[in-house]
Design a protein around this nucleic acid. Sequence first.
DNA 1: GATGAATGAGTGTTCATTCAT
DNA 2: TATGAATGAACACTCATTCAT
Lengths: 243, 243, 243, 243
Amino acid sequence: MVTSMARRGLVTVARLLQSLPMMRKSAAARPLTQNDPAQAENRPAASRERILDAAVAEFATQGFAGARVDAIALRAGINKRMLYAYVGNKKALWLAALERVYEAKRQEERTLNLQRLAPQEAMQLLIRFNFRYHTDHPEFLAMLNDENLQRGMNLQESKRVAELYSPLLTLLSEVLARGQADGVFRQNVDPMQLYISVVGLGYFFCSNQFTLSAIFDRHLDSVEEVLTREQHIVDVLMGYLRP
Amino acid sequence: MVTSMARRGLVTVARLLQSLPMMRKSAAARPLTQNDPAQAENRPAASRERILDAAVAEFATQGFAGARVDAIALRAGINKRMLYAYVGNKKALWLAALERVYEAKRQEERTLNLQRLAPQEAMQLLIRFNFRYHTDHPEFLAMLNDENLQRGMNLQESKRVAELYSPLLTLLSEVLARGQADGVFRQNVDPMQLYISVVGLGYFFCSNQFTLSAIFDRHLDSVEEVLTREQHIVDVLMGYLRP
Amino acid sequence: MVTSMARRGLVTVARLLQSLPMMRKSAAARPLTQNDPAQAENRPAASRERILDAAVAEFATQGFAGARVDAIALRAGINKRMLYAYVGNKKALWLAALERVYEAKRQEERTLNLQRLAPQEAMQLLIRFNFRYHTDHPEFLAMLNDENLQRGMNLQESKRVAELYSPLLTLLSEVLARGQADGVFRQNVDPMQLYISVVGLGYFFCSNQFTLSAIFDRHLDSVEEVLTREQHIVDVLMGYLRP
Amino acid sequence: MVTSMARRGLVTVARLLQSLPMMRKSAAARPLTQNDPAQAENRPAASRERILDAAVAEFATQGFAGARVDAIALRAGINKRMLYAYVGNKKALWLAALERVYEAKRQEERTLNLQRLAPQEAMQLLIRFNFRYHTDHPEFLAMLNDENLQRGMNLQESKRVAELYSPLLTLLSEVLARGQADGVFRQNVDPMQLYISVVGLGYFFCSNQFTLSAIFDRHLDSVEEVLTREQHIVDVLMGYLRP
DNA sequence: GATGAATGAGTGTTCATTCAT
DNA sequence: TATGAATGAACACTCATTCAT
């Protein structure tokens, strides 16, 4: 999405997001400091990082079956043999990459500082944050989609699955409770349903932008369309929460 | 989803859906009449049908890259050589299968008879129809996801892309207009945004049920969860539309 | 062995053996008639034959781990893909080759016609036959050795293992019984011990000819040494059987 | 063999052998004294020992082609790089291991003290010693087999090949001569033929125990079978030597 | 129209060996 | 002396596609 917007010479959503105080560049986007002398001591760790970055990039664009281990090694600038030494095999690589994108999202979520905000503002922030995370991290959506194509097999086998639980649901529950206590949100809202709606309203738009654009013959990746969508989502959900 | 619910000995959503007047069995689910004498005259056409059914099944469970042409030929009970004669190659097969799942959804949508209903009832029906279509047709979601992974390349190249335009958007616009004229729906609603919300609220829940179930340690494929979700979606959207 | 003797310009043991009435050329040695029109109808069977011949040759000279599937396909004059289509994988190929060398020996053994001979002559024939089979079929020894290196795992899993039972033990038992009845052989002889001795006295000489030749600095593959060994074996065993 | 007998709760042949005065534990079986302070001075030598022990173990169970240099380094508890520094490469490692098993057997043979025994007793001792060495040292048989698979190439290139010449042939010749002088052994016996028979009668039984057990559906690794075989070998050979 | 056999270019994975420190 | 990281060639096996009949 970012790419195609950049192609159109417009400000990217990524840049827009940076205008919000809580938005940081994700670890995955950080430029690789291959010869950083400060990291010379723990090269192995750095190699593993590079491998995982490359894996996320390849898997996200090609899917598991379409991804090529050679391509990942090439992207990582590392010998294929080392890749196997570090990670094991393609499946383990997938799982590590999957855990990585989950973890990246969790880290972003942890930077949200909602306590200082009134419930309605906090809720809006949560909603916008999520939407923007999706627009900015197509690799997250792509990997989740492919993992679901595999029926979640890999995730189930992950020993770290418990750690991947999104703090967002907790945050959402807290804000919701605060708002309900303040009388600004309606009662009888299931936080999980709300969470799935918060995510889903943006997920489909982002994940399926290509087919939607083709079928409707519109450019859903333009900044205008993205911002329009964000506002619509806020309207729908805030309307739903109104007492 | 259907399978796991059946395993749990509960009524399937498919059955539930049949209780609604507009629900029919989809083309994809129609039993294959391999030796139907009535079709003996146009065997080629029947063969092509079998190939496409098999392709949808394989592609939907394995994705494009993971699908095996051999497996499709096997599923179709046809010689691999004929498959190439009929369709061309793997990419053409994908496109044909993709057009097929779109077309199948269109056909279902055409059976909806909304004019006879009041706007609010018609809108609810539309919403429920969509959700249930997703729960019952994982192949539709799976193929759309994978097509988006490929950035919609194949769909763009389709000569029939115009035909695939969902009647749902038109239906939705009509019902929306009727409701607005009657004063039961709010003004200033972008039909496309509404459409994307109608779809998205169910899409994410269905498409990502495996990762969601794993992360939240819940069985989102149970009948209860499915029905709960459906009602939530109706609540959110009908609430949004209220003037 | 044959090769190195041929190199020395001497008559091969193989030729010597043909002077005995019961000796035939083994199936494995039969020249391949790749384009035999009479076999055009069942090419697949012929291909499988060629694959197995090639597998025996490769495995016997390189062992299981040292053998290369590519080399086998090359020897068989067949595409590697077909090799997998016909046989499955390297392990299945090994097992098929192993069964083949066993079966080849059985077929030779079945051509022995011992009833017409007096017990002592029949016994000598058995002993000589065995020895010569070993000298002529290094592939048999080599594959047995490597299968034992693998602790007989493959053989145990063979569904045809019962069929591979050597008729030789039965023949030996019969001749032994006849001789004992005639009073020309001693009593109290365990046929299996006798069988193992019959085989073992030649096996070690043949199988280990290279290390023996190196350690003793003699050419144990010369015709003279081979014939001397054969006579020694006959002497040892016939002496043992004398009442 | 020893293992499976031990499993059956019977005395092991190894233990039986220890009851004979000339039987010692082989060098290969000697426990590794990794941190022996007495050897601290010549650690390199100790490292080389460990490497060779590990190489014998790996090569004997996997063959040359099947053996993994990594596995040998791991077994030896040494860095792979050092392994190359000490020995050179895989082929040199094989040769060193091969020389080691030969040397180990020679050392055992040198402990035999036959002069004190009458010819017939000495001969029996030689025969039993050999058989038991084979049952107790499967690594010896395995490496010899694999070296022969390689057509003795490595052994031929060994500079120490002359040193590996078995003292057994000399011992055998001496005992044979003594017995012939005493009139208790027949004349006209080729010592080398006798030697090959002494070895071969046990070699085949031990080396091929797995295929023999599978084909005959018997447990040739039981103590009873082993002892029976030993007695049979003695009977055959002593019978042959009788004047 | 229909089929079984064939193929070359990959595809994940492993190996013996060497480099840099 | 010792080590962890690195490498390129090879390995078993698979794939989409086409040939011959």
